[in-house]
Design a protein around this nucleic acid. Structure first.
Lengths: 121, 121
DNA sequence: TAGATACTGAACCACATGGTTCAGTATGCG
DNA sequence: CGCATACTGAACCATGTGGTTCAGTATCTA
């Protein structure tokens, strides 16, 4: 792949692209949890869950701290503001684009009507 | 991996996790484009670009139509509403969670002050 | 101190990803 | 017709992903 620096947005959208990880985020939105807690809740091995947490941590969406034998996971400081902003901007673009197409269609209809000719099908 | 059915959300967040694909979406927000157009703009082979378009199409974010030799790509009908909704819900959870933690911290401070003892560091 | 608990890391697996090249096929144009 | 254009598909490459098992290490607890 020869893949170089992933941007923040790359990393967080990738982190969000997995149902387990989205579930973990929601879970941590209710209460902090250990790796064991999460692994049980999502029915997978500790090792597997630790990888998911690692991905979320890399994306800055989760922070963890180990005290004694227990690593506690909690929500990170990022509120997905950049991600929300990107999507919002896109939605505006989308709307503008479709409005534009609507106008073109209106224009076509107007012309056709003015035209008099009936060209069915 | 033995990975089964990807959900819509999985697919669209995955589609958004690549800078090239986000770029393509923005591009199509301005004007429809052929595979060749996009491949040139993003400086990659036709085949490479076609794969990206395929991913976007799978996620329902782009639709394409081939007329003659040219395949034209345009924005799909999905406005990322589900994705925006998920993120928005998460942001609310996040805020609630941090407010809650703030309250706990306030409580601790209050107690400490009422306590009289000074336990620096 | 012994055993249970909680994590950690390496190794493996099968399949996905983001690219490429190369060899087609289909279409348009002079 | 013959050449250029535009895409398409298979195959390949290196690395990532989403899991697993197994063999540790570190920390509690009785």
């Amino acid at each position: 792949m020869v893949q170089y620096a992933k941007t923040r947005l790359d990393a967080s959208f990738a982190a969000l692209s997995d149902a387990t990880r989205r579930g973990v985020l929601e879970q941590l939105g209710h209460a902090d949890a250990s790796i064991t807690d999460l692994a049980e809740k999502f029915r997978m091995t500790l090792t597997g869950m630790k990888k998911h947490v690692g991905v979320l941590e890399q994306a800055g969406l989760v922070i963890t701290e180990k005290v004694g034998r227990v690593r506690t996971c909690k929500l990170g400081l990022r509120r997905l503001e950049d991600e929300a902003a990107w999507i919002e901007r896109y939605r505006q673009l989308w709307t503008a684009r479709f409005d534009e197409l609507d106008k073109v269609i209106e224009e076509l209809k107007r012309k056709e009507k003015a035209d008099g000719r009936k060209k069915r099908e």
